[in-house]
Design a protein around this nucleic acid. Structure first.
Length: 518
RNA sequence: UCCUCGGUAGCUCAAUGGUAGAGCAUGCGGCUGUUAACCGCAGGGUUGUAGGUUCGAGUCCUACCCGGGGAGCCA
């Protein structure tokens, strides 16, 4: 059947026929010398008079397919000639090893059938802005970069399940619709629930505690919703959170679990996502350094470090490095302009493109140079008792090459259900894990209050409705035990593993302030 | 809500207050080993909106709309 089917008129039937012999691009390396049939879309096309190079995408990878006019029927040659970007195709040909090509293989095409020719695919293989791409997210997902990110996301999700399942945790789900706010209503999405109001959950925390008292060690894995009006690279209004909750765990055990957990995620990504991380130009060494032990410090120690001479020196060094980069780029730009007039046309175009890249980079450097003094000022004036801001977290993580754990926070900046430090009532047994390289807080958690009287008092102090928490109080009435847990933000974690600047690239369809579609 | 940067061709970006341009994409032509292929030709614009200053505004001023980044808040 190779190369002879008329797909233009009857491709649906034919697809069924070839199903047995169709293989995916990712499995081509084991098919050298054989004839393979591939189904996919045209990512890119190059060519000359009697020769076309088609880059085929099938979702599992990319492969270059060479069409030589002398080796194919007229019909196939016309199909190759007519194929445009994202045209859906069935390609049959011999698999050749070729180290120069993507995936190390190349298809010597014997026939091409077209399923649909495409006109004017909007995402061209050139630079595009964020807004343009996000408006076309349904198509953008076909591109190489989202391909890599989504595959890493999938790997991270599998690592999470494997990690907990291997340790005897039960995966259980918390409800998404809730009657009451856990921590204030300002960040909750309110919905109509048969005439009365309800909210979309912003955490599975309290229900997680219920399940831990029933099943010992559990983890939730589900979406949460935050109506925060934040427009930053770290925020989504809908994101996925993983919340383990463990009976008979204290803060120390909680921190060790979080540490083992992140090490597992990073090491699985390094070993299983080599190709994806290479596409994303991720520094693998940075991920390989994610080893125990993570630096641990109390909030007070963190404040001290933040305001220390060591931080000032780091800021100074960063400033110097940026200024060196800046003058280097400016010098390059000047040199390019000098040679521009006597350059050939193609070279001029390279220089033009490079100038745009340099200008963009210089803008970023200038912005950071503007910010650095403010960051230092804010750090040195930091008052004990406040929560860390984004810049404070970034400066703290600059001191280390792996995630850091900050614990024993002032109780005022932590949730009402946190247990107090028995030795210092001003402190809560909470902990945050801050990812390195400025990726910020990816885990927040702690040991939960297990004393009924204390919790009732806390609910009063926070002006929360007592009756709504009766079921929660029951956990402290009937067999209360020390217990702990934490929440991991999936998208922030994926952004960190992939080394992405924007969190919105880490979820298939991001929901942010001002974006609800596609 | 506040601060800050931006909005020019389908896309990415240029343009001292003085005739709106380039590359890519698209169309046509050329090229048998391309890797963001290359070479030639062509079409493509109410410069976000509304006012104002000026002999003259993409450029300056005012207001508004939309977007990026950040603060607050957070994973």
């Amino acid at each position: 059947m190779q190369g002879s089917g008329n797909f233009l008129t009857g491709w649906k039937e034919s697809l069924k026929d070839i199903d047995m012999e169709t293989i995916t691009i990712e499995s081509l390396a084991g098919q050298i010398g054989k004839v393979a049939t591939l189904r996919g879309w045209l990512q890119q096309k190059r060519g000359s008079k009697g020769l076309f190079f088609l880059v085929l995408r099938d979702g599992t990878g990319l492969v270059q397919c060479v069409v030589n006019q002398q080796n194919v029927e007229v019909n196939s040659w016309q199909n190759a000639s007519a194929a445009t970007q994202e045209t859906s195709l069935v390609v049959t040909g011999k698999v050749h090893a070729d180290e120069r090509q993507i995936g190390g293989v190349e298809i010597q095409v014997s026939s091409i059938e077209v399923i649909q020719i495409v006109d004017d695919y909007p995402i061209t293989p050139k630079a595009h802005g964020v807004e343009f791409l996000m408006d076309r997210r349904h198509l953008w997902l076909r591109s190489r970069r989202p391909w890599a990110v989504m595959r890493v996301r999938n790997r991270v999700i599998m690592s999470i399940h494997n990690f907990f399942q291997e340790r005897g945790f039960l995966q259980m789900d918390a409800p998404l619709l809730t009657k009451n706010a856990v921590e204030g209503t300002s960040t909750l999405f309110e919905i109509d629930y048969f005439g009365s109001s309800a909210y979309l959950t912003q955490s599975g925390q309290l229900h997680g505690e219920v399940m831990a008292m029933a099943f010992n060690k559990i983890y939730t894995f589900g979406p949460v919703f935050r109506a925060e009006k934040s427009k930053t690279r770290r925020h989504l209004t809908e994101f996925w959170m993983i919340e383990p909750e463990m009976a008979f765990y204290d803060l120390e055990m909680n921190m060790t679990l979080a540490e083992d957990f992140l090490i597992r995620i990073a090491s699985d990504a390094v070993s299983d996502c080599e190709e994806e991380l290479e596409i994303l130009e991720r520094d693998l060494e940075a991920l390989r350094r994610i080893q125990a032990p993570f630096p641990r410090m109390t909030y007070s120690e963190a404040v001290e470090l933040l305001q220390s001479e060591k931080t000032r020196i780091l800021v100074q060094e960063r400033q110097d490095a940026l200024q060196r980069q800046q003058s280097g780029l400016e010098k390059e730009r000047t040199q390019n302009r000098d040679v521009y007039a006597r350059s050939k046309e193609w070279k001029k175009r390279r220089i033009d493109a490079r100038e745009i890249a340099i200008n963009t980079h210089l803008d970023q450097i200038e912005e950071e140079l503007r910010n650095l003094p403010k960051w230092w000022e804010s750090a040195v004036n930091f008052e004990w008792g406040k929560d860390f801001g984004g810049s404070d977290e970034t400066l703290l993580t600059w001191h280390f090459d792996r995630p850091i754990i900050v614990h024993h926070y002032p109780e005022a900046v932590k949730a009402f259900y946190m247990k107090r430090d028995p030795e210092d009532d001003r402190l809560a047994l909470g902990m945050d894990v801050l990812a390195p390289e400025g990726f910020g807080e990816i885990i927040g958690g702690g040991q939960r209050a297990d004393d009924l009287t204390f919790l009732e008092e806390q609910v009063r102090r926070h002006d929360l409705p007592q009756e709504a928490f009766e079921w929660y109080f029951d956990l402290r009435r009937y067999g209360t035990v020390p217990h702990s847990g934490f929440g991991l933000g999936l998208e922030r974690t994926v952004a960190w593993v992939c080394g992405l600047e924007h969190i919105r690239e880490t979820i298939p369809f991001p929901r942010t302030l001002g974006r609800l579609a596609p």
